[in-house]
């Protein structure tokens, strides 16, 4: 139906953010990090926007919940993989994609630990991150699966 003008796309031409780490961990790179490492990076690169301990904000605090934000990323989100991917592609807001994979793992570990979802000493990596049992995981109704495009 079209003129067929798409050009072949090779794997090396695809930037990492054109994919997303999947909830089961597919797409996670090598490397890893812990809350301790993450804590230092957080203080340097994240605290101005999200608060000293991650619960103060002003921007959607990833630790909580509290009166500012009912959906803290490190507790409300169903999958921990999302934390890694989102931080790596998008944060910090003024320098997105500047973090290394290790840094992103460490920051995910810091946020998860601050929410009490993992232990302070737990390393987050390609194997452990998808295994994190997010407390809210089974608390979502999938409206698309249930009723398609009909508004809920």
């Amino acid at each position: 139906e079209g003129p067929g003008l798409g050009q072949p796309l090779s794997d090396e031409e695809i930037p990492f953010y054109a994919r997303y780490v999947m909830p089961d961990g597919r797409g996670l790179p090598e490397g890893g990090g812990t809350a301790a490492t993450g804590s230092a990076i957080y203080a340097e690169k994240c605290a101005t926007c999200h608060g000293a301990t991650g619960i103060e904000g002003p921007v959607m605090p990833p630790v909580g919940p509290n009166d500012i934000w009912a959906k803290p990323a490190g507790r409300y989100w169903p999958y921990a993989t999302t934390l890694f991917d989102y931080i790596r592609r998008a944060m910090p807001l003024d320098a997105p994609k500047s973090l290394s994979d290790d840094e992103a793992y460490a920051l995910a570990a810091f946020i998860l630990a601050a929410n009490g979802v993992i232990g302070e000493g737990d390393t987050m990596d390609a194997e452990s991150l998808p295994k994190v049992e997010m407390p809210n995981r089974d608390n979502f109704l999938d409206v698309w699966a249930k009723q398609g495009a009909t508004p809920w």
Partner: peptide
């Protein structure tokens, strides 16, 4: 959740960045 750096031989597919 566990351990150190990614383990060789894990069943999880590993992607270089």
């Amino acid at each position: 959740a566990g351990g150190g750096a990614a383990l060789a031989g894990a069943t999880m597919p590993r992607a270089a960045r």
